[in-house]
């Protein structure tokens, strides 16, 4: 479970103090996916960084399973926008990185990795380097790393944004398949309305200047490709899009 209460983050740029997040509160129940959506500059990446333990100067409270966030004692899986693959490590070493840092490499790890690679369709690429892969393949390697670690929580920053539309839909389905098997508490940031509706059981809509939560809604349409082609899905998408657009005009 991720709990964020009255979270405010500001940073100094020269003499000015910019407020990135103002009084943000939200809860992601255990075993659910929360999609954070909003216009650019609404602080959604900052929010993710606080939960990932990358920003530790903030006001308010941020907790994972009732404990203050601490990357050393917790297993936080963080997937940045560029997937965070290290160019000097081959695919296998990149996938194992999380487990290695956490000293969780066992005899089973390699077996599990092989199975995971097969499921993600990247078997046979283990000895390649990230720059030899396509965008979709890198995304799959990033997912393999995240899921091999069995993290307490999984955080993804615009995970599918860099992909073309067809690959993106394919990868969303791949993610959902893995997620449904593991049930890891997940928070993902996106600017695609369809992505939020398809993946998030809970959708947090944020507004900009200063970044704050505008609306939290439960989404009954997540998690299946049948619902994705339903009229309700389309209608809700239009509604959400209109709201985000309206905010952009106000700002």
């Amino acid at each position: 479970m991720i709990e964020v209460e009255h979270l405010s983050v500001s940073y100094k740029a020269g003499r000015k103090t910019n407020i990135a997040l103002h009084d943000v509160s939200l809860t992601v129940p255990k075993g659910t996916v929360c999609a954070v959506i909003g216009p650019s500059g609404c602080g959604k990446s900052t929010l993710l960084k606080v939960v990932a333990g990358l920003i530790f100067q903030y006001e308010g409270r941020a907790q994972i399973d009732g404990e203050p966030i601490n990357p050393r004692t917790m297993k936080i899986g963080f997937m940045p926008q560029n997937y965070g693959l290290l160019p000097w490590k081959n695919v296998a070493d990149n996938i194992r990185l999380g487990c290695r840092i956490k000293h969780a490499l066992t005899a089973d790890t390699d077996r599990e990795m092989t199975a995971l690679c097969a499921r993600l369709g990247i078997q046979g690429l283990e000895h390649r380097y990230p720059q030899e892969l396509s965008g979709g393949q890198r995304q799959r390697v990033g997912l393999a790393r995240a899921f091999l670690l069995h993290p307490d929580i999984l955080l993804m920053d615009e995970p599918f944004s860099a992909l073309d539309a067809i690959t993106r839909e394919e990868m969303q389905a791949v993610f959902l398949d893995l997620w449904q098997a593991s049930g890891i508490t997940t928070m993902l940031v996106t600017h695609y309305v369809e992505e939020a509706l398809y993946l998030g059981q809970q959708i947090v809509r944020m507004s900009a200047q200063p970044g704050s939560v505008a609306e939290i809604l439960d989404n009954p349409l997540s998690g299946s490709s049948e619902k994705r082609s339903s009229p309700e899905f389309f209608a809700m998408g239009q509604q959400l899009r209109a709201k985000i657009k309206a905010m952009g005009v106000q700002a």
């Binding site: 990357p71 936080i76 965070g84 999380g98 840092i101 955080l155």
Partner: peptide, 24 residues
């Protein structure tokens, strides 16, 4: 950003050195 995945895993300085600083 290169450091982020390691930082969020709570990596020690020696781990950051070995996996990022040295090869980079």
């Amino acid at each position: 950003e290169t450091y982020y995945p390691l930082y969020s895993l709570g990596a020690s300085f020696m781990q950051v050195f070995r996996d990022i600083i040295l090869p980079a």
